[in-house]
């Protein structure tokens, strides 16, 4: 009496009603594997695609802040001035991405969905470590493309609801997951941003100070790295800055960022003497 092909009757296929998995990625792998980023045929030869650049993250008292510049480059050309590279992964975590922009944005979309899917099916949130490990698995699935030069390197951070503090995780292209202490940066301008963070980060900072330090680090990165864009006061394009605290993910408003960027520029101008080169 059961039809040979369940889809022919119009009912939901068996993959939908199979109990057990709370993972959307696992469901896709079984039901529609062609939709998974890692399952596509690898491109042959060199692929020219926009690259996103610098992401910084640092912890403060009661949370963490993540910030990303707005530039995407393709070779020596600026592909976009207003790309966004910092996203809410869920209510209590943020993910920032450096690397091939198209793949990275798709990865973030799938990661956001993975966390929301788990939350809806299980009725509870994944632990912060659980989220970080999930992201690790998803990056590992992209290794084939990374070998072709299309790497995606995220920075993940959030508020740990069990330990009541902000935490940061970095990744390599093979999916290796490393917990960072206090602050970290990824992307082409990360060398300069890390130097800046080391000098400016202090234990026990508040969220406003942390936002200021994050913007300073991005300005320092933009100063020395051509692929990182600084605050653009002409077009009023500011970095994407978000804080994650016990109250959840909150994107810092443009007005506050304009003030922070203006104050930073003012300080730099004040230390700039006739001989130039200061700060």
């Amino acid at each position: 009496m059961t039809p040979a092909d369940p889809a022919a009757s119009g009912r939901l296929p068996h993959a939908f009603t199979t109990p057990g998995s709370s993972s959307f990625v696992d469901f896709l792998a079984g039901h529609a594997p062609d939709l998974l980023p890692g399952n596509r045929p690898l491109p042959v030869g060199d692929v020219q695609a926009p690259h996103g650049t610098t992401i910084v993250a640092l912890t403060f008292d009661g949370g963490m802040v993540m910030a990303g510049d707005r530039r995407a480059t393709m070779g020596s050309m600026i592909a976009s001035r207003e790309i966004e590279k910092v996203f809410p992964a869920d209510e209590y975590s943020a993910v920032g991405i450096a690397g091939t922009a198209g793949l990275a944005v798709e990865l973030v979309r799938l990661f956001q969905l993975e966390l929301e899917h788990y939350e809806k099916i299980e009725g509870s949130l994944l632990s912060l470590d659980g989220k970080a490990n999930r992201l690790s698995t998803m990056i590992r699935g992209n290794l084939g493309l990374a070998m072709q030069g299309l790497a995606v390197v995220p920075l993940f951070g959030g508020y740990d609801l069990d330990r009541h503090l902000g935490r940061i995780f970095s990744y390599d292209v093979t999916g290796g997951r490393y917990e960072e202490h206090d602050h970290h940066a990824v992307g082409s301008g990360s060398v300069f941003a890390r130097g800046s963070l080391k000098k400016l980060w202090r234990p026990g900072m508040g969220s406003a100070d942390a936002v200021r330090v994050a913007v300073e680090a991005l300005v320092d990165a933009a100063d020395d790295d051509s692929a990182t864009g600084g605050p653009d006061s002409t077009r009023r394009i500011w970095p994407v800055v978000a804080t994650v605290t016990e109250a959840g993910y909150l994107r810092v408003g443009d007005d506050e960022l304009a003030a922070v960027a203006a104050a930073s520029e003012e300080r730099r101008r004040a230390t700039h003497t006739d001989r130039g080169g200061a700060r």
């Binding site: 959307f24 939709l35 799938l110 969905l113 899917h117």
Partner: peptide
Amino acid sequence: VRYADLRGYS
């Protein structure tokens, strides 16, 4: 949930 998430993703 799977139906909705798959549709929203595609």
